[in-house]
């Protein structure tokens, strides 16, 4: 469960103070697929960074399964990102000179898993995101955008995180590939009881999520009419 309490993040720009995240509070149950929509510059990515411990809030707190991130030392935050968080970026952010398998293996390497075990798991994950086998050992800079995003999702799943944060995961993809990626995230959320929070411009994508939030001038509001209870976890 993710609990966000009175989260505030301010930036100074000259003599102005900007508050992209202004007193945001919400709770996400485990296994929820949620989306945050909002205009460009509304603070969506900043909120995602705070939830993923890439940035520190000015005030407020994020707690994952009851463990507060506030005041956690950097080394612990790194461990939190490694163990509990999976990131999917709009630009994929794969390591270009490594193969798809090697990219997926990276988080498991940082977690200290044996090479043979992490290789096998990386291959399983790539199959799960439907990347054809003969592309597993191909360098990621030689894959298409859709293929790269699948590799990025597989990498985000590597350490079985509790929370996947996806920043515009379909932003660079065509509609068909984007739909496939959303179906994939939805299935992951359902099958692995993983909480997934997607930041998007894409209203169609947002409509496919269990809960839909809107971020406007730093304030987060939920579309209550859209609130759905996540489907039970399948065996």
């Amino acid at each position: 469960m993710i609990e966000v309490k009175n989260l505030v993040r301010t930036f100074n720009s000259g003599d102005r103070t900007i508050k992209p995240v202004n007193d945001v509070s919400f709770v996400l149950e485990q296994g929820t697929l949620a989306s945050i929509v909002g205009k460009s510059g509304s603070g969506k990515s900043t909120l995602l960074s705070l939830l993923g411990a890439l940035d520190k809030p000015t005030s407020g707190d994020v707690a994952v399964n009851g463990v507060s991130l506030a005041g956690m030392p950097d080394a612990k935050l790194t461990e939190y990102r490694r163990r509990d968080i999976g990131f999917v970026f709009q630009q994929f952010n794969l390591i270009p000179n490594l193969s798809a398998v090697d990219n997926v293996m990276l988080p498991m390497e940082f977690a200290g898993m044996r090479k043979a075990a992490r290789r096998q798991r990386a291959k399983d994950l790539l199959e799960q995101v439907q990347l054809v086998q003969d592309k597993h050992d191909r360098r990621t800079n030689r894959l298409s955008g859709g293929e790269q995003q699948r590799v990025a999702i597989a990498r985000a799943l590597a350490n079985e995180p509790k929370l996947i944060l996806a920043d515009e995961p379909t932003g660079n993809l065509d509609e068909q590939t984007g739909d496939h990626i959303i179906s994939l995230l939805s299935a992951l959320s359902r099958d692995h009881n993983t909480t997934i929070l997607v930041v998007t411009h894409d209203r169609a994508l947002a409509n496919k999520t269990d809960r839909r939030f809107r971020l406007q001038q730093g304030k987060l509001t939920e579309d209550q009419a859209h609130h759905r209870t996540p489907l039970p976890v399948t065996a």
Partner: peptide, 24 residues
């Protein structure tokens, strides 16, 4: 954490570091 069969559970830190260093 995944792959408990091949995982780091219970391993001393130096073994984890060794695995990381070889890959690095």
């Amino acid at each position: 954490m995944p792959g408990e069969g091949g995982s780091d559970a219970g391993l001393p830190g130096r073994h984890l570091n060794h695995r990381r260093n070889v890959s690095v």
